[in-house]
Simulated scan of single mutants.
Amino acid sequence: MTQEQPNNPLHGVTLEAILNQLVAHYGWAELGRQIDIRCFNYVGARLNLTTCAR
């Protein structure tokens, strides 16, 4: 059941979509510098955003 959430701009937006937008805007290298998350700093994880999202 889907509910209206007018005060929640991220309602219905997947983590994968958010990551894709961040990568498109900043790139992996810059995200790795700004955010200490393993998937941004290791090449193997870059190949699979689903793995990164987990």
Rank of each mutant, 00 (worst) to 15 (best):
T50L: 08
R46W: 05
C52D: 05
Q34W: 00
L47C: 01
T51R: 07
Q5I: 00
E16F: 02
L47A: 09
C52W: 06
I35Y: 07
N41H: 03
N8F: 10
A45I: 05
V43P: 04
V13N: 09
C39G: 10
A17Q: 15
C39I: 02
G12W: 15
R38Q: 08
A53L: 13
H25A: 09
Q5M: 12
Q21R: 15
N48F: 04
P6D: 06
A24M: 11
A29Y: 00
R38Y: 03
R33W: 00
W28M: 13
G12K: 14
T14I: 06
Q34L: 14
Y26L: 05
D36H: 05
A29M: 00
T14Y: 09
R33K: 12
V13G: 08
E4N: 11
P6L: 09
D36V: 00
M1G: 08
H25Q: 14
W28E: 02
A29S: 08
T51C: 02
L49M: 04
V43R: 12
P9M: 12
A24Q: 14
D36M: 01
G44P: 07
Q5A: 12
D36R: 07
T2N: 13
G32Q: 01
H11V: 07
F40G: 01
A53D: 05
I18V: 15
I35F: 07
G32T: 01
A53K: 12
Y26E: 10
V13M: 15
R38K: 12
W28C: 03
L10M: 15
L19K: 08
R46M: 06
E4Q: 11
N20Q: 15
R33Q: 06
N8W: 04
G12M: 15
